[in-house]
Amino acid sequence: MKKVWVIIRKEWSEVFKNRLVLGTVAFLPLLFTAIPLVTLYYTGTGNNADSAIAATDLPPQFAQLCGDLNGTECMQYYIVSQFLILFMLIPLILPMTFASYSIVGEKRTHTLEPLLATPITTFELLAGKALAASIPGILATWLAFLVYEIGARILAISPHVLARLSDPLWLIAIFISGPLLAIAAVSIAMMISSRVNEPRVAEQISALFVLPLVGLFIGQSTGLLLVNQTLIIYMTIGLIVLDAGLLAFATQFFQRENILTRWK
């Protein structure tokens, strides 16, 4: 495992010198944290008797999501929960950006052959690259969520809303589905990277895999579907199955000789 760590450190020292990647890593979590906090702030400042919303005024799917929250609380919770998907985009987009650059970079600089000539195992190489790509995205997600949690405690209009914003739905999404998404993203990006020669091409193709989550976000915003605990649990189970399949496929896919002869 020592070599895995050596690979991770090398990857980070290389990738973090790339301003575009560094900018993406910093900007995306900042943006995705700011949006729900600003929303919380504005929905909270309107919380007075004149603007109070009756629970009966809300659409049925709101009631299904809110349970015993009053109308105004439900409104705030509903709007902010829309942005849960944004947090789940971070562990998808950041590892993809990393993986696209780190693997295609090996091709462009022809470093793969001397690297494979060392006594490193294929598992160590791939694990190092996958972890180097995943860890920053996962940590950034968790950090962004921590900032959001602190902000939510200050800005939530009531303890009931706060309790909902910290319920298992969010925790499962951030701490379990997030890393699973990162693994899926890295596996997909690595496979795509092995077939193309430009980081941008790898990134653009990989970006297509963000679409299901964007679809989820749009579906929820338009009221077509409801992101609740059941959906997140199903999604997590689906991701476990997907990751297991992708990792098994990746292990088959990345044979040492294939890596060398195909990653030109």
């Binding site: 090398k10 020292s13 010198k17 790339n18 600089t109 022809h110 052959e113 000539a117």
Partner: peptide, 14 residues
């Protein structure tokens, strides 16, 4: 064994 590959293959940003 040591190998010098056809292309030097070095990490340019390092």
């Amino acid at each position: 064994v040591g190998i010098l590959t056809e292309s030097p293959g070095l990490y340019e940003s390092l």
